[in-house]
Nucleic acid binder design. Sequence first.
DNA 1: GGGAGATGTAAAAAATTTGTCAAAGCTGCT
DNA 2: AGCAGCTTTGACAAATTTTTTACATCTCCC
Lengths: 247, 247
Amino acid sequence: MGQTASPLGTARLSDTLAPTLPSGKVLVVEDDPAVQKALRRLFEAEGFMVEVQANGQAALESFRAAPPAVVILDLRLPKLSGGDVCKEIKAHSPATPIVVLSATSDVSDKVLLLELGADDYVTKPFSPRELLARVRTALRHASKTANVSRLAFDGIVVDLRKMEVQRDGKVVVLTAQEFKTLQFLVQNADRVISRDELLNEVWGYQNYPSTRTVDNHILKLRQKLERDPASPVHFRTAHGMGYKFVP
Amino acid sequence: MGQTASPLGTARLSDTLAPTLPSGKVLVVEDDPAVQKALRRLFEAEGFMVEVQANGQAALESFRAAPPAVVILDLRLPKLSGGDVCKEIKAHSPATPIVVLSATSDVSDKVLLLELGADDYVTKPFSPRELLARVRTALRHASKTANVSRLAFDGIVVDLRKMEVQRDGKVVVLTAQEFKTLQFLVQNADRVISRDELLNEVWGYQNYPSTRTVDNHILKLRQKLERDPASPVHFRTAHGMGYKFVP
DNA sequence: GGGAGATGTAAAAAATTTGTCAAAGCTGCT
DNA sequence: AGCAGCTTTGACAAATTTTTTACATCTCCC
């Protein structure tokens, strides 16, 4: 195919997305009934359990009674502002991810939110899929920090926190894109991943390259990490399907 | 070869299987002839079958007559608004992904898209590559929902996630097409499946080979998976009708 | 049992997919 | 502006798969 009109707007570095995650309960804090309904449908269709609260106070009570896996929080709330709810939840349970729905894309707003402890935010016109993606990312991130941030196989150690890779005790320098690719592959070990999926999850919509880009990154990973790059053991190609990482 | 040029009436959802998409039909609902043409070219170049409708009413009729794998929907439409079309389709067939095309002003309200039930949206002007990416993601997602990822029978294990097959604990290497064929057969166990149906479901609309192609793939499956390929137990021939997989 | 049509089979041919490299494009920095 | 490192592209060869072809066999039915 041909022309690549350059994506519009400023690209946002969307992090890698989750594979299939165990879906838990989602607490939606939102006062507009229409949005309530829509969000409920959206998340229920994804297999989440959904609880909706219309104001900050009720949200906090619900949170204490039955802590959810993730919170979707509208900022404009009656009774108790979204910011206060956010702070309160983070004070009690810093590990629970919170994704904020905000009305404006104001930068100072963003800073404020992150100060409040929100993990991510989605601004006004957002696609349902984008919200889902962020929730999944938040969940994955939460479970990751709770679990292993360090993976080892063969003679290779991948430290997700330090973003560092070692082979046989020696540090291997990976570029940003290489590391992201590696991370996604490692986190989806044993599963065949198509180029499209890699492009979506690692590169994201904003920059969606084509042709041999993925292959080239696999090539680099092989050269840097395989003992014999010519006959890769870990970064396997599934001809006609994609690639598969096997530890 | 009865060349049933794949009548569009196949409402089946099951043709979405692999991580790579064997294509399907795209319904484009768009009134601007220039955009129509561009979209048609874009998707056809990617191997999709494209149907274009210029207004909401025609779109709905077309949808009922021959449900597509995915809908690309402009919000501004004559006769019936894009929003109504979206709602109607989602009410009728919630599993079909819908990607909305809109001017930014149309989606200024975050409620709108959620309420409509659209899966994703792209604002005009958009990059062809981005639209494709979103459509692909939507399709992949639609196919992934509610799917058993592991099937077993006799001494054979089919792992859809790993895209790997084992017989008696030993990994059997299948090619992409072989795997897709196997998957379809296994998922329709005990039913006689005609060559035409296999061609439609496994090979897809676009590439429609002929003659002995299906037979050859069955042959390969027998050789790789049957204990005695000469007298197949699982991949049975239904003379004059097609094949049948028996667990 | 004989024959027409359908299926089994293997090897050749065609098509597609992937590996790899080098050059072009970008980005951030001094 | 110029530089250095990373990323993306495009070209081409190599690897692999898919389709076709050509016959051998088999089935069903008279």
